[in-house]
Design a protein around this nucleic acid. Structure first.
Length: 568
RNA sequence: UGGGGCGUAGCCAAGCGGUAAGGCACGGGAAUUUGGAUCCCGCAUUCGAAGGUUCGAAUCCUUCCGCCCCAGCCA
């Protein structure tokens, strides 16, 4: 009997859903939403939320909406709407016709505010922003009631209508909830529901000059869309009583419930919008889609697959404890994915010329190579081999360190899918002292596939044929931050942020040589450069100038041995 | 020292009164025409700490300690 591996992930939110299904809360319906504010680009932290919400919906036969929480026109822009839609779709999620905007509900929300006023639960307050702050009190002192608290319903109705009509200046009045100025939860001290803000909205234009605040708008948006489980991040925990207050005070049936989880933090990575913006605006990175950025756009350009990101998000788990996930786990996820699906090719990043002195100068052989040892169906291809080759500079050592099993004088090594060669001598540039050429002889009997190839040789090198190789630029990326920890959000000094930046997060290699099968490789296509890592053709790539991004290196045991010895 | 949360290995994270899953990282080994992938093996006598309840506690109770969030007309 063949059990289908169930893909249901259980976390504390799923447990709540299970319970709600059992009690038939919401009549068995499960409906979630991903509600970004269109004020920036999506990043891997948003991906966690996207995968959570859409994933929970999918595994519960529910639905998940995409909704723009566009209640603050002064910070928002259509540019972001487009990028967010594109990114969520790229990640692999669909919302059918359920793309919504909070701004579509402005009229309804206004009516509900009128209801609150009529119920004596909201009032227009003329206090200035500074006065409101003073009246709010502090953590230890209770707040004071607004002098405008006891305005009549009629006056409030009139004033609110005139706020909407544009009779008052920005900031001169607000609509406030009438709750409790002495609440230990500052969010309940008569929070602002509506403010006057003359800013052109990207969707409603100048139709409105008052805009609802998040705490008032969000529960209503959820209610209008018949959301059942409103998942958000931990910092909104304190707002939940207010979320519930709005719904309960308006006496709305089947009120959605807010559930909070911990946002994602990644080691060696910046995640706050503010810092991401600084990276772009101060020119540390080339833009929002710079392959070093943890934005969806950056990861996409870097070469990450949507599947690997989804898998990562599914596997890190969901909880309420602030956590810092090791970025190496993300790297593991992309390696794991690409290992199975991507073709192996040979590319030399730091070329060193190698002559096979006993190989005929006019001969070219086509060497057969498996495209992917993990996937026989990927087939094979031919790679030209000739007398003059290039190998990786680090694959030759005139005086090899111990445990080194690559090329060195007098030593034998195998050229992948070709011959076993022996190093006879090398040529050094007199002026620079740099090694310019390595001369070898080959064993004609050792051609790959032939019986003579069966000999044990300690190392295998990748190579390209000098006369056939294609030039390429390769961009190597490293973590944005040197530190494992991002640093406490908002606490660190400006200069500390700069100090944390990795000065060598980008290394551009302008003269690399790749095998000829890569000529004309399309932007977005991914390969494994054998022994080096996974690479993706950048959009900057042209047919006459290939450009590759290194997605992630291969695990490098040799590198670890070297580092371990350095420490000893 | 007001309120709301959170503490299980280096990092995530299961666990829901019956004797510490899994993954990443790390270490060792096998095999290998990628020092990749794969495969084995190891990696918490203990769950922030101390008391208590219980035959039995990471799970229940008490106290303490540590960390995070909140005083926008941002979300």
């Amino acid at each position: 009997m063949d059990f289908q591996e169930s893909k249901v992930t259980v976390n504390f939110i799923q447990e709540i859903i299970d319970q709600d299904k059992k009690t038939n809360k919401y009549h068995g319906r499960i409906h979630l939403r991903f509600p970004p504010e269109p004020n920036g680009y999506l990043h891997i932290g948003h991906a966690k939320s996207i995968c959570l919400n859409f994933g929970l919906a999918a595994q519960n036969d529910g639905l998940c909406n995409l909704r723009f929480d566009d209640t603050n026109p002064s910070k928002e822009d259509v540019e972001y709407i487009d990028s967010i839609i594109n990114d969520v779709r790229w990640l692999g999620f669909t919302w059918d016709d359920r793309l919504f905007y909070a701004s579509d509900y402005f009229e309804k929300m206004y009516d509900y505010a009128v209801r609150l006023i009529k119920a004596g639960k909201a009032y227009v307050c003329d206090l200035s922003p500074e006065e409101i702050r003073k009246y709010r009190g502090g953590f230890k002192e209770p707040g004071k009631e607004s002098p405008y608290l006891s305005r009549s319903v009629e006056d409030n109705l009139d004033l609110f209508k005139r706020m909407r009509a544009g009779e008052f200046a920005d900031g001169s009045r607000v609509l406030r909830a009438k709750i409790d100025m002495s609440s230990p939860n500052l969010n309940m001290r008569d929070p602002v529901l509506y403010r006057i803000l003359r800013a052109a909205h990207h969707r409603t234009g100048d139709k409105w000059c008052i805009y609802p605040m998040y705490d008032y708008a969000h529960p209503l948006e959820d209610y209008y869309e018949k959301i059942t489980h409103s998942v958000c991040t931990l910092e909104f925990e304190d707002h939940r009583p207010l979320y519930d207050w709005v719904l309960n005070t308006l006496n709305l049936p089947d009120p959605p419930q807010q559930i909070e989880f911990a946002r994602l933090s990644l080691t060696n990575t910046v995640m706050s919008k503010r810092k991401l913006r600084r990276l772009v605006e101060e020119g540390y990175t080339a833009g929002w889609d710079d392959p070093r950025m943890p934005t969806i756009a950056g990861l996409r350009r870097r070469g990450y697959t949507p599947e690997s990101i989804q898998n990562f998000c599914d596997r890190i788990g969901v909880s309420k404890s602030n956590s810092m996930v090791d970025v190496r786990f993300l790297e593991h996820c992309i390696r794991e994915d690409l290992n199975l699906r991507v073709s192996r090719v040979m590319g030399v990043l730091h070329p060193l010329k190698l002559f096979i002195d006993n190989y005929p100068g006019d001969m070219v052989e086509e060497m057969e190579s498996e495209n992917n040892p993990e996937d026989p169906a990927a087939g094979t291809r031919k790679i030209p081999f000739s007398r003059i080759l290039y190998i990786e500079r680090e694959d030759f050592h005139e005086d090899p360190p111990k445990k080194y099993f690559r090329l060195a004088p007098g030593c034998e090594v195998r050229l992948k899918n070709a011959y076993i060669i022996k190093c006879e001598r090398f040529v050094r540039d007199e002026k620079t002292g740099e090694i310019e050429e390595v001369h070898c002889t080959y064993d004609p009997e050792s051609k790959s596939g032939k019986p003579g190839a069966k000999r044990k040789v300690k190392g295998t090198l990748h190579w390209v044929s000098a006369g056939h190789a294609v030039k390429a630029e390769v961009r190597l990326y490293d973590h944005l931050l040197l530190d494992q920890n991002e640093g406490i959000e908002g606490q660190e000094e400006e200069k500390d942020f700069r100090k944390q930046l990795n000065p060598s997060s980008l290394e551009v290699l302008t003269y690399c040589l790749v095998e000829p099968s890569l000529a004309g490789a399309a932007p977005g296509s991914r390969y494994q450069f054998m022994r080096k890592g996974y690479f993706c053709v950048d959009p900057d790539s042209r047919s006459d100038k290939l450009v590759f991004n290194r997605i992630v290196s291969l695990r490098d045991t040799w590198d670890r041995i070297l580092k371990a010895e350095k420490i000893e």
